[in-house]
Design a binder for these strands. Structure first.
Lengths: 361, 361
DNA sequence: TATCGAAATCAAAACGTTTTGATTACCAGG
DNA sequence: CCTGGTAATCAAAACGTTTTGATTTCGATA
């Protein structure tokens, strides 16, 4: 391996001179500079970031904790975040939590060992993980993505509004009886979307709607099985107000599975039953029938999350400089630290999968 | 930050003793060991992997270069690889090449700076990137995934066989005129699948088939646009032998786009036109009609790739130990280094999207 | 009781950087 | 001709580990 020492020797200067050429922190005479640059080029020198990190106390890397990369929603989010981070000179360490909080704890410990400068965290599992809170307490900047967690900074979309737009649409079409297939019960995204849905239904239609609730994982299989289970329970055999005329899935994957199951039950979407998703991943435009869904600006969410995280990281670095001065205690500025929550707007995308309910039999 | 020095002080021993307790490389008396362990626990000590990497000359991390995480095929591959790597104690640095070879070069240089122990590389773009070959030349172990590159170790599936199975199936159903919508022209996966398709068609049917070829990106939009372009060119208006009765897409995303476009043209799949994909990602089972495709054992591919890479990394480490001894030159063992290519089998999954061709008008 | 070896521990060097106080060389001003 | 200041460079310390040769302690053997 070619080190800075080799370059220094080749250029006939000291190690610190080479470093200064590279960083530009001290003036270097032009001839020396050129000699050093030439040596670097000739030897193919590449600074060792481990060593740099050791002295600078920053690895210039971020930990990305994501529950399920096979889900294209997380895939495109991860992609956009990595790109944003790379643009700002940071690398991303990928961690697949798979909804397992033991794994999460494991990864967190590893990431701290690796001196990551910050964490991009997709919950996916219920509420804040213990290990995550410890990391936060230890002073590692964290930005929570996609979910809202009250006392942690986060970037997410207006899930309530998305739900509300869906509710209004369905109510206006005349739907009075719906099946809501949620993700994990209690997750903010799920709850917000559901509450929004309720609000939208109330706004859009006269009579209060009949709303059947199911919860489970954010996966196609959950949508698929839920429909079949409901069918076995006679939900779709009911008549009148009881029978759901629309299925609202808490995300696109669930909707995809539900669509399949509905078809297996000989229920045509949207003729016999409307269907909606949430997230607006690419395939929703491609399937048949194309899916009515709420589109997230995923790239904007991703870049906003990275921006917010880097902002906090840089703020933290300044803060750390002052850390030595034993409590400045500026009485004036004794404000509670404000936890930023960036909320981005969503867009309702109306496609083939919704229609007025079938005439009552 | 708590360092090993703090632990040593707290336990009343030297730094090296703490290190030995942690690594177990030298015997430590039981009472001392316990005292050290207790101090570690009490202080919440966490070894700094940057420092460890600096002395051990290994970061215990792998670079993962992937073209497009929004594609669920790459998403699940990336997920499986990261998990396999994590299980073996390695972290994964995520790099989104986006089919851009300048980006690739950029990432490669960053990864080398970060002292990654090896690279997991999905080409996606044409043939070996210059920067990649330099990295290989510099001695970084690389495993190419998904594509076959002749003189680099790789893990991929039997694309030819997959194509052949599709060809046989379609020929046996009676298809004589097909449209093949490929990925990037010249990519081994594309070529192998196409050649297999030809072989399968020859085996399965009597008369030689009419085969129309199109190439482009591995994306839904490419499938979608190709169908529409073909339609404008009158391809689907033709009669008799000319008109394709089946569309063979080089992967599932292309098939998804093609399906959409066919439907927009009022061509029903499979009644008017059969359709097949390749890869076997989850959604192929869920869409309507469900897609006939060739299933890759993605998890096996992913873990095999990680295994192979780690194997090479460890071999390289042994090799490096001997590197000092100026050319052992053991005449006996003067064999050309064998480039391993792990080829895994695929499975044809026949679903609703294929049927015999419609009766000729 | 002197000697040896093994077990346990320590001290110091090394890994590749950045940072910073010290040194040198040079030139302008008095 | 001395003084002072500045520009350019160097040397050494520091970052947090691991590794290894040296030292100490101790019990067993001669």
């Amino acid at each position: 391996m070619i080190t800075i020492k080799d370059v220094a020797r080749a250029a006939g200067v000291s190690v610190s001179t080479v470093s200064h050429v590279l960083s530009g922190r001290r003036p270097i005479s032009e001839p020396t500079r050129l000699r050093v640059l030439e040596a670097i080029e000739r030897l193919g020198y590449r600074p060792n970031r481990l060593a740099q990190g050791l002295v600078s106390k920053s690895s210039r890397s971020l930990g990305l904790l994501v529950p399920d990369l096979a889900n294209p929603f997380f895939g495109s989010m991860a992609e956009a975040m990595e790109i944003a981070a790379h643009d700002r000179g940071y690398s991303v360490i990928l961690c697949n939590t798979n909804l397992d909080s033991r794994r999460e704890a494991d990864y967190l410990s590893m990431l701290l060992s690796r001196q990551v400068d910050g964490l991009l965290y997709f919950p996916g599992t219920r509420v804040p993980n213990r290990a995550l809170l410890e990391a936060v307490a230890a002073g590692v900047p964290v930005v929570v993505v996609d979910e809202r967690i009250d006392n942690l900074p986060g970037v997410f979309v207006d899930n309530f509004d998305g739900g509300r737009q869906l509710g209004r649409l369905l109510a206006q079409l005349g739907h009075r009886s719906l099946l809501f297939i949620g993700g994990p019960e209690g997750l903010p995204t799920v709850t917000d979307r559901l509450n929004g849905l309720r609000a939208g239904l109330a706004e859009g239609g006269g009579a209060p709607a009949n709303l059947l609730l199911r919860f489970g994982e954010y996966r196609a299989s959950h949508g698929y099985e839920t429909i079949h289970i409901c069918a076995r329970e006679g939900v779709f055999a009911a008549v009148g107000e009881e029978r759901p005329t629309a299925v609202v899935a808490a995300n696109d994957m669930i909707a995809l599975g539900a669509l399949r199951a509905l078809r297996e039950l000989q229920l045509q979407v949207p003729r016999d039953c409307s269907l909606t998703g949430f997230d607006g991943v690419e395939f929703t435009a491609m399937i048949t029938p194309s899916l009515t869904t709420v589109q997230q600006p995923s790239t904007r969410v991703a870049t906003a999350a990275v921006e917010l995280l880097l902002q906090r990281i840089e703020a933290g670095e300044n803060h750390r400089d002052r850390a030595g001065q034993q409590q400045p205690h500026d009485d004036q500025a004794e404000v509670a630290p404000v936890i930023p929550h960036v909320v981005l707007p969503v867009t309702l995308v109306v496609r083939e999968s919704v229609a007025p309910p079938p005439p009552q039999r």
